[in-house]
Design a protein around this nucleic acid. Structure first.
Lengths: 338, 338
DNA sequence: TTGAAAGCGCTAACAC
DNA sequence: GTGTTAGCGCTTTCAA
């Protein structure tokens, strides 16, 4: 079963078997062939724990997300795992559910498994937890948070530009009274989206903007609709902190007998795959999960390969406005079907 | 950093440190206190690979799914991970994308990490792969597929009952010409759903049923709408193999200027969380992810704790029809909003 | 190019 | 209750 058995069958030493498998030292072709033959015969699969122990490399990368049931994350996870597996890494996934206690447990589990790097794609990270990782010189990459330190990289999404694109789109359509539905405020990314919205409107002193609370879930959007509709004057358009919230709004409006964009223009954020399939299809700000996954993975690998603990880099990620059918000119008749 | 350092600081042997941590053998309170103190001082975290190597237990469970971007799976994964972490297991996730080659790579990775059990929540598993796992005496639990063998359990979803509930619901509403949009036919669960539909209609010799191809994705539903609408006579209701397909249908109908349930009643399958938020909210057959996760996890743990390789058990999982607003009486006016 | 042997960090047998 | 020690399966010096 083990490497010894393979060595015995091939009539070589375990060292030679190891070298054959790892292709790092030269092995004569005839011997290599005998070894591969023996490996096939016994169905030998190397034991990763033993390898990790002796080499000091677990070949595991941690990936921390907020909420795996938010479609944004599976799409991100999918990309990240793909890159990881290509590079012969395994991914240890951690979901925090926006809960700092869970985050602590996730970090602990990752340290126990001796992850070689962690991508933190959520931001409710206490600095004490961060230190546990940095003290062990584990490369880290954050999204939107930049606690600059050696081997800590950062992917910065340009929320301001994304939000501005959305707001300008609405303003061009004649909307002046805008509302915003935020996300969990312990998330820096959610705060940034909200702040970008307020900042953006500060320069257009039309009507004071309405800011409502959400939770980045369907329910939050649904719930916010009541307040949205009872505000005086009633907003004519709403920008949501993510697509799930926007889908909740669409549903909430429908429950009131209203429809986007006729009664209210609705804009999402993220452009999850589902956004093209809502009724009406959602106008939203695209934040590419594939690009985010790529950036995060590459940042980790770079810091991993860099022996000196040089300061981590900062990467920028741009957004694009995707105009679909949930927004329309203020007062326009409902667009023709199709 | 290691257990030796802790032992040195606490003035005890490494064995005592190990016993203190694992609480399996008695340790005197004063010594235990000294050990915990030393552990805190050095920030000691046990190395899981070393533990796994010596104990022969990796404390890793494999979870194989088809497609992590199908919302059905994140909800399942979430439950499974929760149970696993509670029991001090880690989850190694594998996505196959309905691709047998990927499945092979997933199984290989799991064997390399020496998983202690695998939940296969998809069914494109070749028997040769299955053997690699069973040969190593790894407990397995499948969904819908029952290759009966020692330590191989099975969770059987009662698709026939679910589909029957849906069909009867439509028939009670006066629908006679029904269509079905299937899933990837390499999936046994998809075949079972389709077969249940055909079987169900065989006893009501009204109009011959229309069966269309889908892929369990949004796109498949969208695409099927063309064929659905051009069929003569046109079906008045459609049952979809999963919710994603149904949401695609809703979108496809809208693109044609049609709307459910006025122009076509639509029924989904799974009851993903999103189903309550579609327009109109989706009538669907609920298959509880939490229950599925629980059953699968418990089956694994049971086989794991059972030293003799007794044959795995079969568990049943029932479905329930959830009536929402995407179905209506044939020829009825559109229901009032709300 | 190959082999012998040390040892990664820990648990578990055995001795005391 | 506690310490000593062998050894899990592998990689990696070091020597040949």
């Amino acid at each position: 079963m083990g490497i010894r058995e393979v060595a015995r069958r091939a009539g070589v030493s375990v060292a030679t078997v190891s070298r054959t498998i790892n292709r790092v030292h030269p092995v004569s072709p005839e011997i290599a062939a005998r070894v591969w033959q023996a490996i096939a015969e016994v169905g030998y699969v190397p034991n990763t724990q033993a390898r990790a122990l002796v080499s000091g490399r677990s070949r595991i990368l941690g990936l921390i997300v907020s909420d795996i049931t938010n479609p944004f994350f599976p799409e991100l996870i999918h990309g990240f795992e793909q890159f990881a597996v290509e590079a012969r890494f395994e991914v240890l996934l951690g979901s925090t559910n926006y809960d700092p206690a869970l985050m602590a447990s996730v970090v602990r589990r990752m340290i126990e498994r001796r992850v070689e790097g962690v991508a933190v794609m959520t931001s409710e990270m206490e600095s004490s937890l961060l230190e546990q990782l940095t003290d062990r010189r584990v490369p880290l990459v954050f999204m939107d948070v930049a606690p600059l330190a050696p081997r800590v990289s950062n992917v910065c999404v340009d929320y301001a530009a994304g939000v501005t694109q959305a707001v300008q789109h609405l303003q061009r359509l004649g909307h002046e009274r805008l509302a915003f539905i935020g996300g969990p405020l312990q998330l820096k990314s959610a705060r940034q989206r909200r702040d970008a919205f307020l900042h953006c409107l500060a320069s257009y002193p039309a009507a004071p903007p309405l800011v409502l609370d959400g939770d980045h879930k369907l329910e939050g959007g649904e719930l916010a609709v009541q307040k949205l509709l009872s505000a005086v004057p009633r907003p004519t358009a709403v920008l949501c902190s993510n697509d799930l919230t926007a889908i909740g709004v669409l549903h909430g409006l429908d429950a009131e007998g209203l429809r986007a964009p006729r009664d209210m223009s609705v804009v999402g954020f993220d452009d999850i795959h589902m956004a093209r399939f809502t009724l009406p299809p959602l106008t939203t700000v695209r934040l590419s999960r594939a690009a985010l996954a790529r950036l995060a993975f590459d940042a980790l690998i770079r810091d991993l390969q860099n022996p000196e603990a040089s300061p981590g880099a900062t990467y920028r990620l741009e957004t694009t406005l995707v105009v679909r059918a949930s927004t329309a000119r203020l007062g326009a008749a409902a667009p023709a079907a199709g």
